[in-house]
Design a protein around this nucleic acid. Sequence first.
DNA 1: AGCTCATGGCGAG
DNA 2: TCGCCCTGAGCTG
Length: 279
Amino acid sequence: MPEGHTIHRLAQECLERFAGWTTRVGSPQGKFADSAALLDGAVLDGVDAHGKHLFLGFEGRGWVHIHLGLIGKIAFDGDAVTDTVRLRLVGGRHGDQAMNLRGPAACELITDGEKQAIHDRLGPDPLRAGDDPGRAYARISRSRISVAALLMDQKVLAGVGNVYRAEVLFRHGVDPFLPGRALSRPLWDAMWADLVVLMREGVRTNRIDTVRPEHEPEAMGRPPRRDDHGGEVYVYRRTGQPCLICGTEVRTRPLANRNLFWCPTCQPPAPESALAADR
DNA sequence: AGCTCATGGCGAG
DNA sequence: TCGCCCTGAGCTG
């Protein structure tokens, strides 16, 4: 579920549903009950998103900092209230809007200062207007770590997860094991610009689509394909299947506890790739 | 009923 | 590098 596009979309949705109105705040599951009691009845007056971090502002009472982790989910409307709901909001103009949060890695009430500290330790986010790709490149270009690992490091770049990582590397023909220091500035700028477009589209459609029209199966004379995760992608979770462009079997390998996917033909290793510190 | 896996990230060793 | 936290879906029995 959650890469940065999901979080930014949720921020927008919370703003539209709840902002400006007093909000009932509860924690059916109990782990957020003390803070929920402090917030109950406050006006939700602002939202923010940075990478995979979501912030809900309650007038005069601080921010609820939410991180969904790998398995957290937010549902709205008629979603059933079960004993796993960590945070429940009810409010809006007619008091009939509802939000349920389940399974988050973080759900905590924090101050402005604590919120700022989170922003300070995150890298630039392609979905935050004005964020500077140069800040990410400053770290990438100094690192011997693979570009695949760097793209997932939220201190380097905020919001990209396992799907966007695999797909942006594919779209630019970059070998995942290329050390960051071997990535040129123009190539990085192109990848960033691509992420801005892909992730904005992800916010709009609520899914990750990365396949260019000319590579759609129909355009390539192949039968249509449906992914079980909702979007159309080149390599993510397509292990052993033919690359949509060249037909080579998509490969996978765990890197830093996560599965990495790539096409060894479209993303050929550079000489420096053998030297990545983390391969 | 129990296992594995998932678009994350943390802290201990 | 590993184990662990959170929940639920999709398998296997």
